[in-house]
Design a protein around this nucleic acid. Structure first.
Length: 292
DNA sequence: CATTACCTGCAA
DNA sequence: TTGCAGGTAATG
């Protein structure tokens, strides 16, 4: 479940210890697919003796920049973890890649479900990820004017649209539910039916919940930890995510919470606070007409 | 546009 | 034993 705040927390925790460190070697574990289709020798030779210049983040992607224009791209997907540990420490559970540094530390990539990837790119251009990802939500480029433009005419559920990384980079299921709840918008509301006021509120809510997530060093529900293996604290600050399943009432109106499916994933919603407004002639309306 | 595949631990 | 967790690529 690492989303933008979790990935940013990992980046911040690893930035100082990795910067200016030379990579002295690397080792692959029981799941060679972790580095993608590339031959292991290519990866190993590519990173060896390179010095780490910095770590960038775009959406949920990390890029460990090396001193020759190459870079190591990391996507944690669901259960990936990057952990900095002394070389003598035994392998952690599900450890599939180890990068050894010149100061006796090692960067370990572990991943229970093997969804994540650690890719070596021999040449990283300045537009890294630009074609695949929308604007960073915590920059001015993500504005209500921008989101209005993106939502205009769209019949898909607003939740599906804000989970679309081409529209906003870095929002996942947890922060999407939190932002929609704060802005009192039903996850299934067609994107194009949102009012200007709702869009402006949603943009502010997305920025707010992501900033809060970063301030609290991420949401640790299951496997997420920062680069030192430490849990975050944002799970205690969530207003709706996960509460529907445990039968808790709405934190705003004390009414019942519901779980609906939106954007292909479970979404926590308070139907009292986030009523669904039906729109004449919208996509779902056309489908209902067919049924009759 | 929505749905499925990819994975595995864990709760029901 | 079943189904759910969910980010993304591939598929319909």
């Amino acid at each position: 479940m690492p989303e933008l705040p979790e990935v940013e927390t990992i980046r911040l925790s690893l930035l100082a210890p990795l910067t200016n460190r030379r990579i002295t070697g690397s080792a692959i574990g029981a799941f060679p697919g972790v580095i993608g289709a590339m031959d292991w020798s290519m990866f190993e030779q590519g990173v060896r003796d390179r010095t780490i210049q910095g770590i960038r983040r775009r959406g949920k992607y990390l890029l460990i920049e090396l001193d020759d224009e190459s870079g190591i791209e990391v996507h944690l997907r669901m259960t990936g973890n990057l952990t900095l540990l002394p070389a003598e420490v035994d392998p952690v559970r599900f450890e599939y890649l180890v990068i050894t540094l010149d100061d006796g530390q090692t960067l370990r990539y572990s991943d229970q479900r093997k969804f994540g990837r650690v890719l070596f790119h021999p040449a990283v251009d300045r537009s890294w990820m630009a074609a695949k990802l929308g604007p960073e939500p915590l920059t001015p480029a993500f504005s209500s004017a921008y989101l209005e433009r993106k939502l205009r005419g769209r019949t898909a559920a607003i939740k599906a649209l804000i989970l679309d990384q081409r529209i906003i980079a870095g929002v996942g299921n947890i922060y999407a539910d939190e932002a929609l709840f704060r802005s009192k918008i039903h996850p299934l509301q067609p994107g194009g039916s949102l009012t200007v006021a709702e869009i402006s509120s949603l943009v502010r809510s997305i920025k707010h919940v992501l900033r809060m997530g970063v301030e609290n060093r991420g949401t640790s529900f299951s496997s997420y930890r920062d680069g030192y293996g430490e849990s975050g604290a944002n799970q205690f600050r969530l207003r709706i995510y996960g509460r529907g399943r445990s039968g808790e009432p709405c934190t705003r109106c004390r009414g019942p919470l519901t779980i609906v499916e939106a954007g292909g994933r479970s979404s926590h919603v308070c139907l009292r606070c986030q009523p669904l407004r039906m729109i004449e002639g919208a996509g779902s309306g056309a489908r209902e007409r067919q049924r009759r």
